[in-house]
Amino acid sequence: MEPLEIAEKIKEIFPSEVREIREFRGQVSVTVKKDRIKELMRYLHKTPEMGFDYLRDLCGVDYLGKRDDRFEVVYHLYSINHRHMIRIKAIVSEEDCSIESVTDIWKGAGWHERECFDLFGIRFNGHPDLRRILLPEDWEGHPLRKDYPLKSDLGENEWKGIKEVIETAEKNRIYEIK
C-alpha cells in the first residue's frame, strides 16, 4: 500500500485518535494520541494487509517550548512482505510522562524503550525491565531533554574523577610550553 493510503486507513479505523497526517519527502507520519497506542500498534501488526512485522526504530523527541505537549514517541514501522513504511508519532505530555509499552508486540522494542526512558525520562507502562541502559543506574537527569545542559554547570560539585584526570595530566606533562 502507498503510505498515504495506510494513513487514511488508520484514520478510518481510529478516527478519534489521529491528530494529524503529514507527508514530507515521500514519508508519511501519523500523529496520534497516546491512549490507545497499543491497540493501534496491535492492529498494524496483526492485520494481514498492513503486516507491519518489523519495528525499525523507536525513539523520543523533545519539543520544549515549541508545543504544548512536550514529548513525542516516534515509531518507525516497516513491513518486509509488503515493503511499505509508516511513521507513528504519539504525543506524550510532561505532566503524564508515560505511555504503553509495545514489547509484547515487538520484542525488539525492549531496549529502544529502555533507552528512551534513560535519555528522555518517558516511562513505558508494562515494560518487563525498565532500567537505565546507557547511563549508570544512579545518574541524575535525562540528557536528551532540551533543558539538559550540553556542558556541565555543576562547578565545584563536579564528579571528583574529572579533577583527578586533569591533575594527573598536569603532573605527567613532559613538555613545557614556553
Binding site: F24, R25, Q27, S29, R56, D57, C59, V61, K66, V74, H76, M85, R87
Partner: peptide
C-alpha cells in the same frame, strides 16, 4: 534547511543503520 523529518536507512556491514532527522 527545510522543515520536516526523514528516516533514511542504509545497509552497513552490521545491518541497517538508520538516521532519523527532525529539522526545524
Amino acid at each position: 534547511a527545510p522543515k520536516g523529518e526523514v528516516y533514511v536507512a542504509t545497509e552497513v556491514p552490521k545491518g541497517e543503520l538508520g538516521y532519523y532527522f527532525v529539522s526545524d
